[in-house]
Design a protein around this nucleic acid. Structure first.
Ligand code: MN
Ligand code: MN
Ligand code: ZN
Ligand code: ZN
Lengths: 149, 149
DNA sequence: CTCGTTATTGCATGTTGTGGCGATAGCATC
DNA sequence: GATGCTATCGCCACAACATGCAATAACGAG
């Protein structure tokens, strides 16, 4: 999980510790991210960077997202269609539920996913990356709507 | 789940029942699918179709996969990178486990995922589409390797 | 077998990324 | 402040799909 201490204000130092560099392009993305919370797709981040710097190159943004993820400042998952979704400074690690019928999404926290995470850990020694998980299915409301027909 | 009765031999009839058509392009894909079992990505299917008919157009293959999925003859999920993976006539519905460290994958059947599926059903009335699920994390062997360092 | 309807195709183009490569520019050192 | 190492950038090409549109061709009806 991302702790408040490793805030956006220290990104520069965090990069330098690893011999990495603080560039204008990275500043732009960090700027965007620091004003974002919750979820954003990669392409949305590219757009938002372009609002600040129209010269923004997509590959630079995606590559920077990779290094920020290695630093633990963002985490990514995939929507129901497989597209990248970034978690920015999430208060608590979580995965996602997605209804393929109405398109609704809900967060599922460790406590709720505990049974799955716990049983895979126990039976296989497998450590689940909850923030990468998106579970697709049909929500209660949509199931009722179908049943009533 | 896909039952043996709705075999590839009856695809043509299944299509006609719905007012859909049996075309050479669809025949090619069904041909490929009938000789495939387990998992294939979309692009692999395009390649395999091209081996039979070099004129194969990707969009036609992807669109045909959509209709075959509506007929219940294939099911798709997404790999760790979000790319499509198709389940062809799976003996038993299952999701996937993927180790981000060694790249290994394992199938997880309903029994094993029961705790998760059951608890989401109980607490939210949410019906999980297990075959669309890919859980990413770290496998036991890779965790040991890291611990030993 | 011939028609007419309309599902499907192929094409062009767009979206979301990924990766190689040579040029540029951080930044630690002097 | 100038210098040199090398991380990073911009550019281009490519992968994996998705989608609108006009031309084509299944196929049921006569
Ligand atoms: Mn999907
Ligand atoms: Mn991923
Ligand atoms: Zn719903
Ligand atoms: Zn592993």
């Amino acid at each position: 999980m991302i702790d408040a201490a490793s805030d956006w204000t220290q990104v520069r130092e965090r990069l330098h510790e690893r011999g990495l560099r603080w560039t204008p392009q990275r500043r732009t993305l960090v700027d965007v991210l620091s004003r974002t919370d919750g979820h954003v797709t990669g392409s949305e981040l590219v757009e938002r960077c372009r609002e600040i710097d129209p010269e923004t190159t997509p590959s630079t943004v995606y590559r920077t997202l990779d290094v920020l993820e290695e630093l633990g400042l963002v985490r990514h998952g995939h929507g129901a269609d497989g597209r990248e979704e970034f978690h920015v400074l999430p208060a608590v690690e979580h995965g996602h539920l997605h209804c393929q019928s109405c398109g609704g999404t809900w967060e599922v926290e460790a406590a709720e996913a505990g049974s799955l995470v716990g049983s895979l850990e126990a039976s296989r020694g497998f450590a689940v990356d909850l923030s990468h998980v998106t579970i697709v299915g049909t929500c209660a409301a949509c199931r009722r709507a179908v049943a009533e027909t």
